[in-house]
Simulated assay, not measured.
Amino acid sequence: MSDSSTGERAARPSEEAAEAAILAVAGRPDAGRSVAPEEVARSLATGPDWQSLLPLVRRAAIRLAESGRLVIYRKGKPVDPADLRGVYRLGLPPQD
């Protein structure tokens, strides 16, 4: 039973996996205009500890927004990813 600690701790998702999860969750037909970062963290989690993935989701969201592949909303309005503070939501850029 010496490997019980490895069985309890699942591998953390990569930065690329977080980016892919954000785009997948935001792109679902039922997603609406925006999604909460908690939804993305839950989709990435392999166990009950999805809250620990929120910083990873935040970093990935900022990278995607900086590259123009995502819009970060605060109080329903797009925000500059460099000024991201507090509660936020994620959405795909509008299709023209």
Rank of each mutant, 00 (worst) to 15 (best):
S52L: 05
T46M: 02
E8D: 11
L90Q: 07
V79F: 05
L53C: 05
V40T: 05
P78S: 09
A24C: 00
R33V: 13
G86E: 10
R12E: 15
S4Y: 06
G27T: 08
R9T: 14
I22F: 09
S14V: 08
D49S: 02
S34T: 12
R33H: 06
I72T: 05
L70D: 04
P81R: 09
P81K: 07
A26S: 14
R28T: 01
I72E: 01
Q51F: 03
D49L: 07
S52G: 04
L90Y: 08
I22Q: 07
A10S: 11
V87G: 00
R28H: 10
P93K: 02
A20W: 02
R28D: 12
A20G: 11
A31I: 03
Y88G: 09
L54K: 02
P37W: 10
V25W: 04
A17F: 05
D30P: 04
A60V: 11
D96G: 15
L23N: 03
G76Y: 12
L54S: 01
A60I: 12
V87Q: 13
A65F: 09
D80R: 13
S52P: 01
A10W: 11
Y73M: 01
T46Q: 13
E38M: 07
A60Q: 09
Q51E: 14
A36T: 06
A11I: 13
R63K: 15
A31M: 03
T6W: 03
R85N: 05
S14G: 11
R12F: 12
G76L: 08
A36W: 01
L70W: 10
E66K: 14
S67I: 00
K75T: 09
D30H: 04
R42G: 06
P93I: 08
V71H: 03
L70Y: 04
R74A: 13
A24S: 13
R59N: 12
L92R: 09
R42Y: 04
Q51C: 02
P93V: 07
G27R: 04
A82C: 02
D49A: 13
A61Q: 10
D96I: 02
L54G: 07
P93R: 06
D49P: 00
D49V: 00
Y73V: 05
V87Y: 07
R59C: 01
P81N: 06
G47I: 01
D83I: 00
A26C: 15
A26T: 09
V35N: 05
M1S: 12
R69C: 01
R12W: 12
A82Q: 14
R59K: 14
I72F: 03
P94V: 12
P78F: 08
D80P: 05
